[in-house]
Design a protein around this nucleic acid. Structure first.
Length: 300
DNA sequence: AGCCAGGCAGAGA
DNA sequence: TCTCTGCATGGC
């Protein structure tokens, strides 16, 4: 077996790798050797942050590494983005605490399938389900970072594969009623009835409608895919955490209709609302003790 | 033990 | 259009 292992490094400003990989936008990065172990496409990747220096190892031929910088979104000007956030106390606390949190550019299929697992599940469980799914149905990677035993180091299962797996088999990955949604969605994508790669080009409203036509995909899951994988950085997914915060902060604690809440979220957070949302989400969960990793801004 | 989890779909009002 | 409920499974 080929065991090529390539290494690179780069200075990256305004990056908190832990916040980026452990903020609930992606589910398959695991702490390892003082860094993070994960899979990008068909490559096994290990990342470690040393101050403003980002070190990376990858299996296989990494080429010019542009795939990695694209994935990490290091070209986005984070300071400029954060400057567009509305100045309310909660968001200011969130940006102070989570400084360096970046949004990734994920593969749309992996992102869609992942968030299909997210409904009424805690993040730890989503991670568990996806590891099981990848271990059982993902293609083995050609190469691996040697000497490690981290779980689930396989490629994310392709839609064509999942479309042929019996639903009962998917349920064995502990995904419960979500199995049918995943199976049916995999079938639509595998059949070519929905081209995920086209979503960034068709405009927000069309892209959102196409996603919401999928079984098991409502507004929240669609918005996650639009934000995390399709480049629509203005989209604000409203989940239970964000919803609670919005109610308490801007609606005096009472319960506005879902439509009112969405309309508010859509306009209040500005052109990079999705970014603002992720800062808010991560901060709220960190404050509630739900985040294992320590924000770099507080590590001193 | 009981409530809740990065929701969604279908039913009934 | 709005609200309510069932859904699998497990963390806390």
């Amino acid at each position: 077996m080929n065991r090529v292992l390539a290494t690179t490094g780069r200075a990256v400003r305004d990056l908190d790798l832990a916040a980026t990989l452990d903020s609930g936008q992606v589910f398959r990065w695991w702490p390892s050797r003082g860094g993070w172990d994960g899979v990008v496409g068909r490559r096994r990747v290990w990342l470690r942050q040393e101050g403003e220096w980002l070190r990376a190892e990858a299996s296989g031929d990494p080429g010019d590494w542009s795939w990695l910088w694209t994935y990490l979104g290091t070209d986005e000007d984070l300071a400029a983005i954060v400057a567009t956030f509305p100045r309310d106390p909660l968001l200011e606390a969130a940006t102070r605490t989570c400084r360096g949190l970046r949004l990734l550019r994920q593969d749309p299929w992996e992102c869609l399938a992942s968030f299909l697992m997210s409904s009424t599940k805690q993040i730890v469980q989503i991670r568990q389900i996806l590891e099981l799914l990848c271990t059982r149905h993902g293609d083995p990677l050609e190469d691996s970072v040697p000497g490690r035993g981290e779980p689930g180091r396989r490629a994310f299962p392709r839609p064509e594969v999942l479309a042929t797996v019996p639903e009962a088999e998917l349920r064995r990955c502990k995904m419960g009623f979500r199995a049918r949604y995943l199976w049916e969605t995999a079938r639509v994508v595998a059949d070519g009835a929905l081209e995920l790669g086209a979503l960034p080009r068709v405009g927000l409203e069309v892209a959102r409608r196409r996603l919401m036509d999928l079984p098991g995909v409502g507004r929240k899951i669609a918005d996650c895919v639009l934000l995390f994988a399709c480049g629509y950085r203005q989209v604000v997914p409203v989940d239970v955490w964000v919803s609670r915060a919005l109610r308490e902060l801007y609606f005096g604690g009472d319960r506005p209709s879902a439509a009112r809440l969405l309309a508010f979220a859509e306009t209040h957070f500005g052109p990079y609302g999705g970014y603002a949302q992720q800062y808010l989400f991560h901060y709220l969960r960190w404050r509630a003790g739900r985040v294992a990793s320590v924000p770099a801004a507080l590590a001193h």
